[in-house]
Design a protein around this nucleic acid. Sequence first.
DNA 1: TTGATTATTGGACTGTGGTCCACTAATTGT
DNA 2: ACAATTAGTGGACCACAGTCCAATAATCAA
Lengths: 195, 195
Amino acid sequence: MGGSEARRPKAGRPPDRQAGRAVRQAALQLMREKGYAGVSIAAIAARAGVARQTLYNRWPTKADLVLDAVFEETGRNAPALPGGAPPEGQAGLEAFLLQVLGHLQQDGDPLRALIAAAQHDPVFRDALRARFVLPRERIVTDLLIRAQARGEIAAHRDPGLLSQLVHGIFWYRLLNGQELDAALAREIAAEIFGR
Amino acid sequence: MGGSEARRPKAGRPPDRQAGRAVRQAALQLMREKGYAGVSIAAIAARAGVARQTLYNRWPTKADLVLDAVFEETGRNAPALPGGAPPEGQAGLEAFLLQVLGHLQQDGDPLRALIAAAQHDPVFRDALRARFVLPRERIVTDLLIRAQARGEIAAHRDPGLLSQLVHGIFWYRLLNGQELDAALAREIAAEIFGR
DNA sequence: TTGATTATTGGACTGTGGTCCACTAATTGT
DNA sequence: ACAATTAGTGGACCACAGTCCAATAATCAA
């Protein structure tokens, strides 16, 4: 299976182009209106003006559909700060955490549902990890590596571990229904760089 | 509503004593055999030899029932170290984390399912938090407070925040399907006390 | 135009969590 | 004995995720 699958001579009815966006937008809207548990596949299909089976043709489960909707339709797969340049130092970490915070304020509920869904499906869990978790973890790790190179962080500390500590507390508080506010972001950044 | 509900003169048919244990044991067995998603209320009722409605009479949801089964029937509500005295210092933290590790090695799967279920039900989430999460969080917090009093941890650092960082990374790695091994426990303890 | 191919559609179907209800069984107080 | 009270039982019922299937629609190649 090298590169021989170059271009199958496309045949058959093509997928409805409109449908894709319509479904994702309907899913995202309903999600924000009623939360993950309050949305049914049937409702999404109805609002998108599409047969229910079409959703199952394209997405294996409700969780996959919502994952797609949240991350394709809101363009949040690129968690980098809009500025272009990656965040730097303690202030950069704090800024990044604040941005994640904003994301969670809007889509925390869907995200919690996705994390929950991932626990029942290893394949989906890996997809979520690849598309959402790892990119964010990487940003913080890289930030800490650069900070360490500048001597802002002791050489013996492990940036990968620190990054997971940071993301971990966000998950922990999110999944436990605790508040995630700006003060927390500041305290975390201070603790990591602090003293 | 002070203390006037002293002792209602018990009337009516008493709850079946056998049923309680039978149901919890059936739930736990099936849980370990087929995992959370693979177990149905009907199956638990059948194995316990009890009407399905009886389960709903006693537990509001499947998640509550399983939570009860896991934590009542296995006696894991007491997360303290068997020694009696609470763990102390960096070594104590590492020992505590190793003990949690052992727990996760046996019941990590049900626990992941419970955390997932909690995301769909705020009431259940609070119950899980009260019976499972907070006691463990507290142990580490208290350990760190005592260590701080002995000067092992800088005075300006927040033991509550540190405790959540520690538990957070455990959740993060558990829910992401990453390994939780003794080396991690050692690195975390070193990072918290370290430098 | 015809055939092959693929997508969409709508409807039937299954399994599950959860609710509702009427009936029966066991207990206490009179 | 009898009423009141509470628990267990069995069955009907609903909403939803997910599957299956036959019919139809749109496209490409001949």
